[in-house]
Write a protein that binds this DNA or RNA. Structure first.
Lengths: 256, 256
DNA sequence: CGAAATTCTTATGTATACATTGCCGCCACA
DNA sequence: TGTGGCGGCAATGTATACATAAGAATTTCG
């Protein structure tokens, strides 16, 4: 629920950056690589928030890093006040721990916590697929998703895992974005951020995603047919398999 | 007006997590009436946070109320700094809107938003029941839940709707607390707070909860048996019926 | 030598002063 | 009468000064 991107705000059109990219896509591709902090004339608090979040997600402030408020303020060349305010948000979002006399610490997820997050994440994403099946897809939307899957299959064949991962993120986040429940979307977004580092860490280690490609097809077909139960089942199957795979990769530290 | 706090004893927050660092965040005896702000020697920011949250949930700051930072600071007899920090958290939790030159506004949920929240809430609560069925219940835990249901049935017969509602909250929050997923629990807690005013508003209007009593039994039985699918199905059925009822009550403004 | 108390350091919590900037109303002009 | 610009106001954003209290270090007493 980052206040910088209000999910539903009825009249909440924040003074958008003069970049003017918002109007092209109806839905800002929710989940993807973290965007670099906007250098615009944003208030310092926002700069601090985005900048810190970016550094954390990118791993430039790795888990366990611990800094004093003053150090962060110096790092960002501003006073402690906006830094504190940004840190409150980051803490609320679960990205940092604030321990009153020991500075702030970039949160490291234990594998239990990661599992908990995965569980919630999957539950909600499955729900999104189900809702989308209920809501239905326009031809245009279907074409877009179909196109994504085609690209992914091509990426699998090359193979270009990096590109595939990116498309995969897009596919999943599109489904969530289209499902029509903004709250669901924003909660997933937050959980995504919390997992981000881990996911990117294991992405290159994954086996060729042929299974995923097939499962994605099944999900899209079920959604297209408007078969809620089937969509939920397919998506759940997909998530469970993928999460099992991911958690296994994490436990086997073959990453080094 | 029996506002007897602490319905759950000190033994209820038994998290058998292997990691010893479970003390990251206090486990606020799940879901219940909002507790009055602790007058202890808490930092001002915390006082502001709890105090405002309490007032909002209790309806003493009704939706739509709008105040300037300075006004809030005066109201709470402290400077703007801790107030701002508290407001950031409240905004992040979706309880207030902060519009840069117009002060803060206590958030009013549209019925669409409420529906969205319900959807997410139900999804997660059903998951909690499923997880709990998987994890299993100790005899002591079962006895406690069983006891709750007995009390509820008695409350239904009297009838004492107020007490029933309170027990109902306890039952549901116990299930969530026992399910073992702390993240799930905290997200549900937050969604609960967002719905709180609405729920309490319609609670007295509901018909006699005989259906709910039966459904609760079915849920508890399924959990006891360790039948995940059945537990999920029962809980989902329960939630869907209850939510439908609640949303219908809301649309018919017989409340006046 | 060890433990406890006391002082000392310093990070944080809070207040306040100051800068900034959006907003409102007023007035000139068409 | 409607519109657009301008000036003043006042609320917020930010910096900084100060109070407080948690740890750390040191010293003293057993």
């Amino acid at each position: 629920m980052a206040s910088s991107e209000k999910p539903t705000g009825p009249g909440s059109s924040r003074h958008a950056a003069p970049g003017g990219e918002a109007a092209t896509r109806s839905v800002p591709a929710a989940r993807d690589r973290p965007s670099p902090p906007p250098n615009n004339r944003l208030p310092a608090r926002e700069r601090a928030y985005h900048d810190l979040k970016y550094r954390i997600l990118e791993g430039r402030l790795p888990p366990g890093t611990s800094l004093l408020e003053t150090e962060v303020a110096n790092l960002l060349s501003m006073s402690r006040t906006p830094v504190r305010e940004a840190l409150i948000k980051l803490e609320e979002e679960g990205l940092v721990d604030v321990r009153p006399r020991h500075g702030i610490t970039v949160r490291a997820l234990s594998s239990e916590e990661l599992e908990e997050i995965c569980e919630v994440f999957s539950t909600l994403e499955v729900k999104a697929a189900q809702l989308l099946a209920r809501r239905g897809l326009s031809d245009e939307e279907y074409a877009r998703l179909d196109n994504l899957l085609n690209q992914m299959e091509r990426a699998t064949q090359k193979p270009d895992i990096d590109r595939w991962s990116q498309l995969d993120n897009t596919f999943h986040s599109e489904i969530v974005a289209l499902c029509g429940n903004a709250r669901l979307q924003s909660m997933l977004r937050q959980l995504w951020d919390q997992q981000y580092r881990v996911r990117t860490a294991i992405a290159p280690l994954r086996p060729l995603p042929v299974d995923s490609d097939k499962e994605h097809r099944a999900i899209l077909d079920a959604i297209r047919k408007g078969d809620e139960a089937e969509a939920a089942r397919c998506h759940q199957f997909h998530r469970e398999r993928a999460d099992r795979e991911a958690l296994a990769l994490l436990r086997n530290p073959r990453s080094a």
